[in-house]
């Protein structure tokens, strides 16, 4: 199967819920309710939404929507996936809907992430680096970006991501591979073109 096919099959359902079914019959001891999820992970979800390119003014609304979906799903049921991966999958779908809505409203003419990140960069040299990073992230399709952010920036394991998306872990690797390649290409091209990969054996 080609990577593109794997990627498509790896997409979580588009109703805002991750692929992993949440059993309504799960015992209470195995379930984490939305209140606890919010208390423990709301900040993570908000930051994750920001890293997916959600404009800052929309983060709160989408954050709430993520937990509404989590509530509808009956909360998180403990298993191979981690709660953050599960919430990340929900946030990805919610963000996708948000991106669509904004496109319809034609409100995101410029890349919000570039603006957000540039504004947060503390110095000129870091600003340049931050803009490059933002452009590279913005170049990724949403699903690739979600996998990239979850793994590279949030430190979620591929196994956990695979579990919530209901795909083999190899599919996550594949998605990450494509995401990394694209990310590094854009990051390099946004600078002076120098490769960010050192050759083996060199300091």
């Amino acid at each position: 199967m080609r990577p593109e096919q794997l990627q498509c099959s790896a997409l979580p359902p588009r109703d805002g819920s991750p692929a992993r079914p949440v059993s309504a019959a799960a015992p209470a001891s195995e379930r984490i309710g939305v209140e606890e999820l919010f208390r423990e992970h709301a900040q993570f979800v908000a930051s994750f939404l920001m890293r997916l390119g959600t404009p800052s003014q929309d983060v709160e609304d989408l954050l709430q929507e993520v937990f509404v979906v989590a509530h509808r799903k009956g909360g998180f049921v403990k298993g191979p996936a981690q709660p953050r991966s599960w919430l990340g999958a929900i946030a990805t779908n919610v963000a996708r809907t948000g991106h669509r809505s904004r496109r319809r409203r034609r409100e995101d003419a410029d890349s919000p992430t570039v603006e957000q990140l540039s504004a947060q960069a503390p110095s000129e040299s870091e600003s340049l680096s931050r803009v490059r990073l933002a452009r590279a992230l913005d170049a990724l399709p949403l699903e690739q970006r979600a996998a990239f952010v979850l793994f590279e920036l949030e430190g979620e394991s591929c196994e956990s991501i695979a579990a919530v998306w209901g795909v083999p872990v190899g599919t996550v690797y594949s998605r990450l591979h494509h995401a990394r390649r694209r990310f590094l290409e854009v990051y390099e091209s946004a600078g002076d073109g120098t490769s960010v990969r050192r050759e083996r054996g060199r300091p």
Binding site: A42, Q43, A46, S47, L49, M50, R51, S56, V59, E60, L63, L117, Q120, E126, S129, R130, R132, L133, E152, L153, E154, G155, Y187, V196, R197, R198
Partner: peptide, 19 residues
Amino acid sequence: IARELRAEMQRYANEQAHV
């Protein structure tokens, strides 16, 4: 991977949304 990129990614990973 170049140190500059890793450092920038680390900084970005440490930032939190203000909500």
